[in-house]
């Protein structure tokens, strides 16, 4: 999200995209562009010989994640688990992070229920699970260096992986989550409220 570049698109292509939007395939031109960039990147990476798993990881950009209003993001991993982390907005509040404590592996948690605590020097912040399920993996790196969350909240700074119970429930829960755009709006709202 840090660098913006202007992308020029041929007029004919825009017409095609607009038609595609009408059919409901894409929601906006920018969504098409980001999809196109993603596909092109994937092509490039395939040409370079990067394995499929790694490719998916590299393509993980904040725009393609789903968010909760409690500032956690969710991403579906290749194994079908849900990887959970904290957003950049949350990270800005966690400059003095000292500890990340999570429920142990194997613990069942519900949708939008706290699965752990981020401890700073003065506060305890609850972390909310975007989906229900069982914790299958905890990021052990955070135990020793919780600062990773500040440096790389979307990749290295993931916190837990949750295995959903069944796909039906998962789908419903994922639908309730916010897209990057909706989430940004929500943050804007929050900040505005704070300024008042």
């Amino acid at each position: 999200m840090s660098e913006w570049k202007t992308v020029s698109i041929r007029q004919e292509l825009i017409k095609q995209i607009e038609e595609a939007i009408k059919t409901g395939r894409y929601r906006s031109i920018s969504e098409f562009v980001s999809e196109a960039i993603r596909l092109r990147l994937e092509d490039l990476m395939r040409a370079e010989g990067i394995p499929a798993e790694k490719r998916k990881e590299l393509l993980l950009t904040p725009e393609l994640l789903l968010y909760t209003p409690k500032h956690t993001w969710a991403q579906v991993t290749p194994e079908g688990n849900i990887r959970v982390g904290l957003s950049d907005y949350a990270q800005r509040h966690l400059k003095g992070i000292a500890n990340i404590m999570t429920e142990p592996v194997g613990k069942e948690i519900g949708h939008m229920e706290p699965f752990g605590v981020a401890e700073t020097w003065m506060f305890m912040f609850d972390l909310y699970a975007p989906v229900s399920g069982k914790i299958v993996k905890v990021n052990e790196k955070l135990k020793n260096e919780p600062n990773i969350i500040n440096e790389d909240p979307y990749n290295e700074g993931w916190i837990v992986e949750i295995k959903p119970k069944n796909s039906l429930v998962l789908e419903q829960e994922l639908k309730k989550l916010l897209s990057a755009r909706e989430y940004n709006k929500w943050i804007g709202k929050l900040e505005g409220r704070l300024r008042e």
Binding site: F123, M124, L194
Partner: peptide, 17 residues
């Protein structure tokens, strides 16, 4: 005890403290 707050409340709390 450390207060358990949301990110939004933290700033207010800090000012109050």
């Amino acid at each position: 005890e450390k207060p358990r707050v949301s990110f939004e409340e933290a700033r207010e709390y800090l000012e109050r403290v």
